[in-house]
Every structure is written in C-alpha cells, then in structure tokens.
C-alpha cells in the first residue's frame, strides 16, 4: 500500500476551488436562513392560528426528516412547478429552509431570555413600544444568538457536502470528479477531510471567542 502524496499536491488547487464554493453556498445558506428564521419567529408571535399551525408543522418536518431528502425534494419540486433555477440556487434554498427552522428556535429562545424587568424599566421611563424593541430587545437578542448562529454556520459547512448529490460542484463533488479521473480515493478523501476539519475547527475557535466577548453583556 503506497500513499501517493503527489496527486494531492497536483489536485489541491481544484480542491481549494471546491472549498471556496462550499464556503459561499454555506454563507448564502446562513444569510437566507436567518431571514427565514426571523420570518418564522415573527409568524409565531402572531395570533393567526392557521399561520401558527403551519409554522409548527413546518418546523416539525424540517427537524424530523433528513436534510439529504429535503435537498432532493427541493431540487425536484421546483422545476415541476415551473421554477427553473440552477443546482447551486436550489441547494442554497434547501439549506436556507433547513437552517431557518433551527434559527427561528434560537430567536425564540433569545426573546424569552430577555427578562421582563428590562422591558418594564423601559416602559416606566416612558419609552414607546417600538423604541423598546429597537434599543433594548433586538440588540440583546442579537448578542444572545450570535454564538449558536456561528455553530449553525459550521453545521452548514458540513452538510453542504450533501449538495454533491444534486451536482453542485463544492468540495465533495470536486473530490468525486478528481477520484473518477485519478483513481486515488483514499488520498483525496483524507485531504478533503483535512480541509473540512480546518474550516470547521477555525469556526469553532471563532465561536468560543464570540461567546467570551458577549458574556459581559449578560446579567446573571
């Protein structure tokens, strides 16, 4: 058994291009996922019961089914209702819809973590409701959800590998193409593993930094 280092060196630029796509699809996923999450969280604050029911069913579906299947459903369902978009976009949609459900739970948790007294202090000072939302509630919700949001981003980086099955040429798909040409699966997959590890580990370090930085804003 010989380990071929040379093929890694030769293919690395391609792999890095794939990694770049992994990063961009994940970034778009977390961005749109946050929008979806905010929308879902707002919907849950409303009193319209069909809307509340829909949101609860939606979140239950996302949390109870594999992302693998969700990606395939999004990929096949969009053309059948006449929406013609690229594989990349379809992948971003699937990732956003998935993340959105989890992020909405984070936002709801963040909202409940703000103690009533803080809002009452604002009211007692004569602050109108929109001002209380803008200056007291939202900034604190943001600092509370920043660490779990970075964790979700790391999760997206890993799950973006599943987009290879719909042909998005991110890191995993690039690796499959290289292996088909070079027949060196172990060398390539191990390198790919290292690349994912570096990205996710770096994000983990960032998460811990953010956690430490935001503890000062949290009252006991």
């Amino acid at each position: 058994m010989k380990f071929d280092f040379n093929v890694i060196v030769v293919q690395l630029p391609w792999l890095l291009k794939g990694a770049e796509l992994t990063l961009s699809v994940s970034l778009l996923g977390i961005f749109f996922g946050t929008l979806v999450g905010v929308a879902l969280a707002l919907a849950q604050q409303s009193a319209i019961s069909p809307l509340l029911y829909f949101v609860r069913v939606y979140i239950s579906f996302i949390r109870g089914t594999p992302l693998f299947i969700q990606i395939l459903i999004v990929f096949f369902i969009l053309p059948s209702i006449g929406i013609d978009i690229s594989r990349f976009t379809s992948g971003v949609v699937a990732l956003s819809l998935n993340s959105g459900a989890y992020i909405s739970e984070m936002i709801r948790g963040g909202l409940t973590s703000i103690r009533r007294g803080q809002i009452e202090a604002g009211r007692a000072l004569g602050m109108p409701r929109p001002l209380i939302w803008r200056r007291i509630i939202l900034p604190q919700v943001f600092t509370v959800i920043l660490p779990p949001l970075t964790v979700e981003f790391a999760s997206l980086l890993k799950y973006s590998a599943l987009l290879s099955v719909i042909g998005v040429v991110e890191l995993t798909r690039t690796a499959q193409q290289i292996i088909a040409a070079t027949f060196k699966p172990i060398e390539i997959w191990l390198t790919v593993g290292v690349l994912y590890f570096i990205m996710c580990f770096a994000l983990g370090v960032l998460t811990r930094r953010i956690e430490r930085a935001t503890t000062i804003y949290r009252l006991s």
Binding site: A154, K158, Y159, S160, A161, L162, S164, T172, W189, V192, G193, Y196, F197, C200, F201, G204
Partner: peptide
C-alpha cells in the same frame, strides 16, 4: 465533529 459524515 468537524468533518461531514458523508466524507467520513
């Protein structure tokens, strides 16, 4: 924990 399950 830092690599995709698919790659593993």
């Amino acid at each position: 924990r830092n690599t995709p399950f698919l790659v593993q």
